[in-house]
Structure formats: C-alpha cells, structure tokens
Nucleic acid binder design. Structure first.
Length: 474
DNA sequence: TGAAATGTTGGGGCG
DNA sequence: ACGCCCCAACATTTC
C-alpha cells in the first residue's frame, strides 16, 4: 500500500479552517497537507493600507489556528504560478485545491495555473467557498445577468440549497520535509513610523475566532432590532462582520446557516448578504466595476477637481458634523457604519461633485475590509451610475440624516469631540446655533470647527442641474 | 436604503 | 351658526 502524495491548499481570501471546501477536499486525499498562502506580486490593484494591517493579523491568526492543530502555514511572496511550481517540485504534491475568486484578472491567473497543472497530469481543482451563489448560477429568463437587486436575490434564493457548513479538521497533518516559509513580519504589512495600525485593532479582532465571536454576539442581541437599529450609528446594532467576510474568516454559508432558524428577525440581515452576492455578480460580469461607470449615461458628467475639498472630506473637516463623524470613524477604526457610508459618499459626489472613483479609492485605502466588489458596487450605487442605482436626484441631506439617525447627537459627540458641548438641537447644524450657545459649548466656528464647506441648498441645486445636463448630453 | 416643493384636508380662532 | 382664514399635518409630485 502506497502513502498518498501531498495535497496543496492554496489559501487566498479564505483564511479560515471551518467551512473551507478546498481544505476539506485536501484532507479527503489522505496524504500530508501543504497549507500555502501567497502574497501575490503584480496581481492588479495594490493592497489598501488598512487592508494590509488586517491581512497581517489575519495571517497570524490563521498560523496560530493551524499550529494549534499540529500543522504549519507556508508563506511565500512572488508570482503564484512560479511559487506553486516550486512547492510542487519540493513536496511531490499531486493535487492542489483552492476556493474560487471572481474578479477577472484573478480568474485568468487561476485558470492559467489550473490549465498548466492539469496538462501535467496534476489534480487542480477549485471550489465554491466564498459565495452562496456563483454569478453564473443566476441569470434572467433571457439568459443575461441581473441588473436589479430584488429580482437577482429572489432568483438566487429560489431553489438555493445551502448545505451544512463543513467543520474544521480537528488535526492537520502537514508535509514535514524541507519546505521553507517566509516570515510574516518580513512582509512589512504593518505600518511603522508612525504605527497607526495598532489603534485600528482596538476595535477589531481579525481571525476566524474573532469572526465567530462577532457573529454569535450579533445573533445574541442586536439582530432582534436589526430592521430599525441597523440605521442607527449611535447604537451598536450592526454585525460588523464586513472585514471578516471580506477576508474570508467566515463564509456566507456559515452566516446563512446560523440565521436560517431565525427567519423573521434575520430577513433584513440576510438581504445584506444578498447585496454582497449581487456585488460579486456585478464584478464578475463587469471587471472594470471600480473604474468605469456601469451605466454610460454619465460619462459627460463634469466633476470638480477640488483637492482642498477632497482633503477636507477625507479628514472629516467638511463642517457637517454627521459627515465628519463618519470620516473620522473610518480614519480611526478602519470601519464606518453603513448608513453613514451612504451619507458621506453622497456628500462627496453630490455636494462636492467629486468623482465617485476618488471616494472609492479613499475607502479602498482606509477600510480594513476593502472589498473590491462591494466597494465599487456601492459607490456606483450612490453615484447613480451603477446597477439598480439610487436615482440621480436622491441627494442625502447631510444634517437631516444626522437628525434622523443620530437624534441625540451621541455619534457626532464620539467622533467630533470639539462639538461635545453643543446641545442635541444644534449638534448637527452648529452654524445655526445662537452665539451664546456656541460660546457656552466652547466652540468658535472657523477655529475649533469649520464652517460648512458648501451651502447645502446651493450644492443640491448645482448637482441636480449638472446631472440633468449630463443626462441630456449622454 | 431622499428631500423639497406643492397640494389637500381639517380643526380651531375669530368676526 | 356660519364663513373665512390660518396653519399644521398629511399626501402627492417633482427633482
């Protein structure tokens, strides 16, 4: 009887041990495992800075989880095809497994590797591990991809059979020959001088354990009130699972499974999972989703190129407290409440009339999750250029949203401390506060906190006119 | 997953 | 009692 040869598991954005179909397939082979993570070079868009911080800790957590099961994670950087070749040569592996990804440049590289290895008689196999429904599994009656969320999600759920998640292997028996690994610390994913990365982690616990804790905590409480609470950034009513999902520390199937017996209260929440699936479908069929208007009717839109306004937006100095609170939360924690994301995005695009791609780029660099599909699809949604997009005339009122969803102003007080002394009545609109109120709060507008960067009414009228003429031309 | 402008209704003050 | 006006509350339309 011969010992089975080693099988490689190529980890990418699926840094977990439970519900990992590729890992499961490899363990079924019965031979030693080679658990490989590749920091890919020349693999498209560069890693966002905040995402790199998460990646570091995510990999450290994966290493720990693997070592606790008696295995080891091999880290390599460079071109995936060459690294895989060399690992195969060293280990004599005859199989390699991975979970699929959905952006065309990634798929092209994966396909080339698979074709090459298959041609050499190796078993290279990919799996569905990161979506509930793969893009090609859902199409309209006309055989085209859906362009509207509701019918997409209805069709996706129809006949959807979600199998039980796969348990993590209790032990991992890895190839024990001479196989070198690079050191995580040498990848310099963490910023130094200054070390702005560690403060981000005050608010998050990267890794599979952290993800499961988040899910459990969420299902123990906030989900009961999710339908309303999810709109309230002053409350802790959202799951905060987005970075874990984007880094594959939890699978959508695990979330589905945990929620399925909770149908009434979880419906709204699972719809958010649906938006993620929709975004991936959009990215799959539109590889340039992050750079090219989905609807080309707005190609002639005359965006402003105002560097000062853009910087004020990024730094949370627009003079609209609700917007500034969101931007500062993002900068400080690498995450922003979803309601506020919509408002700050609307503000950049519609009040400042800055190209949505500049906002997308800022989020890419500052969000710990930096999910290409969700980020691009959501920015296009707000801009009105996307699939199933918000209509161009929907302009969020930057203080009205604050009054509605942060009624006491607690969210603003947390992130815009210079306004803490203002009463709720004026905290979203400090420029309307009487002098004595400002004085009592210790606020001098223009010194402690900026005057509004633009007048709301004028900005609104300006952008509506601009969209209208762009549409007329387009 | 809006907001503002415009239109309609109905209660109450008042001559 | 009646008509008139005011205006808040709600509904509809428009961007």
């Amino acid at each position: 009887m011969t010992t089975p040869s080693p099988a490689i598991v190529w980890f990418r954005n699926d840094r977990r041990l439970s519900d990992h179909p590729a890992l499961h397939a490899a363990t079924e082979c019965g031979g030693p495992l080679v658990l490989l993570y590749i920091l890919e070079e020349d693999a498209g868009r560069s890693l966002g800075a905040a995402k790199g911080v998460w990646l570091h800790h995510s990999l450290a957590a994966l290493q720990d989880d693997i070592e606790a099961r008696g295995g080891s994670l091999i880290l390599r950087s460079g071109k995936a095809a060459a690294i895989i070749d060399s690992v195969i040569e060293t280990t004599g592996a005859e199989a390699i497994f991975w979970n699929r990804r959905y952006h065309k440049p990634d798929r092209d590289r994966d396909a080339a590797i698979k074709e090459d290895l298959s041609g050499r008689g190796l078993n290279a196999e990919s799996f569905k591990g990161n979506l509930l429904v793969e893009p090609w599994e859902v199409e309209t009656k006309g055989g085209t991809p859906y362009r509207v969320f509701t019918p997409f999600w209805r069709a996706a759920k129809e006949g959807l059979e979600v199998a039980d998640p796969i348990s993590a292997p209790s032990s991992l028996s890895c190839f024990d020959g001479d196989l070198t690994s690079e050191k995580l610390a040498d990848w310099n994913l963490l910023p130094t001088r200054p070390d702005w990365g560690s403060k981000l982690l005050d608010h998050h616990s990267p890794g599979e354990t952290g993800a499961m804790t988040r899910l459990t905590d969420f299902l123990d409480g906030p989900i009961e009130d999710y339908a309303q609470g999810r709109d309230r950034p002053d409350k802790d009513s959202t799951s905060k699972l987005s970075p874990h999902l984007a880094h594959g520390e939890i699978s959508p199937r695990q979330i589905w499974d945990a929620c399925k017996d909770n149908e009434y209260t979880s419906r709204k929440f699972l719809t958010e999972i649906g938006w993620r699936e929709f975004s991936y479908s959009l990215l799959f069929y539109n590889p340039e989703l992050a750079t090219k208007n989905f609807n080309d009717g707005y190609e002639t839109m005359a965006w402003d190129h105002d560097d000062q306004a853009y910087e004020a937006w990024t730094m949370g100095q627009t003079g609209y407290p609700f917007v500034d609170a969101g931007m500062r939360q993002l900068w400080a924690t690498g995450w922003m409440h979803n309601r506020v994301r919509m408002v700050v995005a609307s503000f950049l695009i519609k009040h400042l009339m800055i190209d949505w791609r500049d906002g997308e780029d800022w989020f890419w660099d500052t969000l710990l999750e930096a999910d290409l599909a969700s980020n691009a699809a959501s920015w296009q949604w707000v801009a009105g250029t996307g699939a199933d997009a918000a209509p161009y005339f929907r302009v969020f009122n930057p203080f009205g949203q604050g009054e509605k969803f942060d009624p006491k102003g607690d969210y603003v007080r947390e992130w815009v401390p210079e306004l803490r002394g203002l009463p709720g009545k004026y905290i979203q609109t400090p420029w309307t506060a009487p002098d004595d109120v400002l004085e009592k709060a210790g606020v001098t507008l223009g010194e402690d906190y900026p005057e509004p960067l633009v007048d709301h009414k004028e900005a609104r009228e300006r952008v509506l006119a601009a969209y209208k003429s762009a549409r007329a031309e387009g």
